[in-house]
Design a protein around this nucleic acid. Structure first.
Ligand SMILES: [Zn+2]
Ligand SMILES: [Zn+2]
Ligand SMILES: [Zn+2]
Ligand SMILES: [Zn+2]
Lengths: 142, 142
DNA sequence: AACGTTCATGAGAATCATTCTCGCACAGTT
DNA sequence: AACTGTGCGAGAATGATTCTCATGAACGTT
C-alpha cells in the first residue's frame, strides 16, 4: 500500500514545484481551481505538471494549509487560509474573499445536531455576494 | 428579490419517467446521486434513460422541487425537500436527513456581508454527523 | 564527491460524472 | 391518416481528476 495515512503529518521533501505553487496561492486572494493554478504557474515561467498540482493541492488540503470550496460548476477551488476554523464571504464576481470567524453557527450546529441525536458533528458554510467594487463597476451599465 | 420566479416551467408534459423519478425520490429520505437514482429506477422495473434522469433532475431543481448537495466526492446528490428556505442535518453514514429552518445564519450572514460591503447575499450551509442508529450499530464493534 | 535508497515528478492513459447529439416515439390536432 | 411539438434515450463527447510508471531529484551514508 502506497497510500498515506490520514493522521500522517507534513514531513515532505521541499521541492521547486511545491514552493512555486505556494507562491501562486499566496499571490491571489480568492479561490482558484487546479486548472487555473496550473495555467498561472505555466504563465509565470515555472511550469509544474498538472498531476503534481493536484497531488500537492491534495497534500496541502490534508495538512489544513489550504481550504477547498466547490464552485457552482462543481469544480474544486483552493485558497491558502488561516489554519483555524473559519468560513468565507466571497465575491461571486471577482473572487475576493474574507475569512469569517466566530459565527453563531458553531454553537447552533452542535445544539441542533444534539437535539436530533447526531454525533461527530461537522458543518460547512459559505457566504456569497457581490463586493462593493464589483457592484460599483456594474452600476454604470444601467 | 432573490427569487426570480418566471413560473414558466409549470406547463410540462406529465410522463411515465418523470413520475417514476419523483416516486423514487419520495421513497428515500436522504440525498441520492443521479447515478444511484438511475440504478434504483432500473432495479424497480421502470427503467429511465440516464440522460432523462439528469435532464429531469435539472428541471426539478430549477423549479425548486429538489435540493442539490455535493457529497465529499464532488458528486451532485438530490433530495425532494420543502420549497421554503432551509438547511440540512444529514448522517454521513446512512444519509438520513433532517431539514432545519430558522437558523441564526440567516441574520448573521446578512449582517456580516453588509459590514464588508457585499450585496446580493446568499449562503449555503450543511451539517453532517452520525445519526443515533448508525452510532449504535457501530458501537458493538469495539 | 560518489553511491544507493527513497520519494516526487510529469506525460499520457484511464476514470467517471455530466452533457450533448440527433433520430425516434408518442400525444394531440386537423 | 398526416402534421406538429415535445420528451426520450443510446451513444458520443466533454472535462475534471486520478492513476501508471519510468525518470530524476533529495538525503543520509561512505
Ligand atoms: Zn468582487
Ligand atoms: Zn464553523
Ligand atoms: Zn445514519
Ligand atoms: Zn439559510
Amino acid at each position: 500500500m502506497t497510500r498515506p495515512e490520514p493522521a500522517e503529518a507534513a514531513s515532505r521533501r521541499p521541492t521547486r514545484q511545491r514552493s512555486a505553487l505556494l507562491a501562486v496561492l499566496s499571490d491571489t486572494d480568492g479561490f482558484r481551481s487546479a486548472q487555473e493554478l496550473h495555467a498561472l504557474l505555466r504563465a509565470r515561467g515555472d511550469g509544474v505538471g498538472l498531476a503534481t498540482v493536484y497531488r500537492t493541492l491534495q497534500a496541502l488540503t490534508d495538512q489544513g494549509q489550504v481550504d477547498v470550496v466547490r464552485n457552482a460548476d462543481g469544480e474544486a477551488t483552493y485558497r491558502r487560509c488561516s489554519t483555524a476554523h473559519h468560513h468565507h464571504l466571497m465575491c461571486r464576481s471577482c473572487g475576493r474573499t474574507v475569512e469569517l470567524a466566530d459565527s453563531p453557527v458553531e454553537r447552533w450546529a452542535a445544539r441542533v445536531a444534539d437535539q436530533h441525536g447526531f454525533a461527530d458533528v461537522q458543518h460547512q458554510l459559505e457566504v456569497f455576494g457581490t463586493c462593493a467594487a464589483c457592484a460599483a463597476a456594474r452600476e454604470p451599465q444601467r
